[in-house]
Nucleic acid binder design. Structure first.
Lengths: 140, 140
DNA sequence: CTAAATACCTATTGACATAGTAGGCAAATA
DNA sequence: TATTTGCCTACTATGTCAATAGGTATTTAG
């Protein structure tokens, strides 16, 4: 399952997208609208800033804003940043040790295909695609 | 990530498939071949028996055996049995309460599509497909 | 009939991740 | 300079994961 961190991060990004052009958006406003504890969102937003997904400005009049256009974010990069990896098994995560059973593993090819499919799905979705009416995304 | 329970369950099923026609296979043999603790496998195998994935026979000469032909199992049903659900978010799990935010949730349609894709992927794979050389499974 | 082999059952454990909360410091502006 | 905001460290409760421990029930082989 996708954790709350990943899901809330998407909601924060979408909230900012919906209030683009309004300057810095205080986290309090986002927390109120999304009905998520501001304290918990702080953790999530900190990681988003570190991952160069958005800008934070301190002080009065401060808040957060997108640092790219909404069409330039993919759902995949946001989820991968928050979840660590999208790999279904540890041996396919980035920087994982090579499994000694890899050569004889009957399931590894399936996991690889699955991982590729998941990656393509999420990286094929722009953040801006989540707004408005939705056309299914097909896979080949 | 898919848990060890799901992954080990697949390996147990594949092991039994590879020793089909040899009667009851003691768990000890499977544990030795797969290099997994027999005690831990007991938990997994118990759930597989409960889920009508295999037969267990007690006593000397006992062991486990598939209760269907290998082509009649899908990876999806095995994983779903062990993992509980394949849903990426709680509100899409079987028997989940309807989320009050569902109507306005911008991400729900994406999660639904994703869930459908994952379901189709795993239910489209027969257990017997995992043996031998592998043709990629394509999705439309 | 008995010993061995096997499945089956309940309970317990340590480690780790999840989903937060608490309280304060730093920065910037009105 | 007071207020508003982000930013930082630390803490905690709960639950899940991945196993281990120790026993009971069942069946067959000798």
């Amino acid at each position: 399952m996708i954790s709350t961190k990943g899901r809330y991060a998407l909601r924060v990004m979408l909230d900012l997208e919906q209030h683009e052009g309004e300057g810095n958006i205080p986290l309090k406003d986002i927390a109120d609208r999304q009905e998520i504890s501001k304290k918990y969102l702080e953790i999530i937003v900190k990681e988003l800033v570190r991952g160069h997904m958005l800008n934070g400005v301190s002080g009065k009049g401060g808040g957060y804003s997108l640092c790219r256009k909404a069409e330039e974010y993919t759902v995949g990069e946001i989820l991968e940043l928050m979840e660590g990896t999208l790999a279904p098994v540890a041996c396919l995560a980035e920087g994982a040790d090579v499994c000694p059973r890899a050569d004889s593993c009957l399931t590894l090819p399936m996991w690889k295909e699955y991982h590729q499919m998941v990656h393509d799905f999420f990286y094929g979705q722009k953040l801006s695609d989540l707004l408005g009416s939705r056309d299914p995304v097909y896979y080949i």
